[in-house]
Amino acid sequence: MDSSCAQQRPCAHKSASVLANDQLAERTWRLRLHGPEVAALAQPGQFFMVRIAGRTDPLLGRPFALYDTVLDGQGGLVGLEIVHLVVGKMTTLLSGLKPGDSVEIWGPLGMRFPAVPDHVARVTLVAGGIGQTPFLAYSRELLGGRGFAGKSAQKVVDKVELVYGARRESLLAGLDAFVQAGACVLPCTEDGSLGLKGRVTDGLDTLEKPEWIVACGPEPMLYAVARWARERGVPCQVSLETPMACGLGICFSCVVKVASSEQASGWDYQRVCIDGPTFDAANLIDLQK
């Protein structure tokens, strides 16, 4: 309901040509788009709406996190990458795009990941399935490998851990990229085909107590991670994806219950697209049960 947070953030609506489209893992594709203007605005934690022009089925754009920015040989900004899992009409179409094809893109949208408090030296990222996608750019930024939105690269923390869970090894995408970015990666698979056999919370159990958790993935996983963090007194941020028609804040579809002292009920609906997508897990009503 709260409409006061609608801020004007730099955002662009462009037609972007496909530079490359590569399969990273089972049903998982990385789409590289040309678009220096859009890429120059993007920060880790933000997302883009992507759509194929000239057709009404599928109709709406789909939200995708900034996976990475694309640089040329001289370090100049060329475009950006998104990574997606093929689950429906739009992602099936996207996986079939060829270099030279074009898509409509608008963004960056939403807020970047919140600042890590000064005392935190180690950030623990927890990803479930395709929920890993906002974390590559973030790992680069935290470890000083790359700057975003005009800022130069600067090391923010000493260590980034990625606890990355999937059903099986074939669904884990981009492990090399995370390792290359300097993150310590702990894969967790439910069938034990790679890394730890178990879930991300089993992975968290094996680590030194985290200082600052950021999680992204399916709802049951976020629920489990938020609970794990709460029971141990670890601050936990979660990046959400909810059904979204516009990504711009105009449709009021993607709302989530957020704690609010101003409401008699103790909560208010906020729009994930502009008030999020990252929220403090402690403020999300549905993660407290």
Partner: peptide, 23 residues
């Protein structure tokens, strides 16, 4: 407060919504 989510669903060339006058 408006209706509980999910509030929109895409259909063939269309969009169903039940936002519930959230304002």
């Amino acid at each position: 407060p408006g209706n509980p989510p999910p509030r929109t669903a895409e259909t063939t060339s269309g969009l169903l919504n039940a936002i519930g006058l959230d304002n």
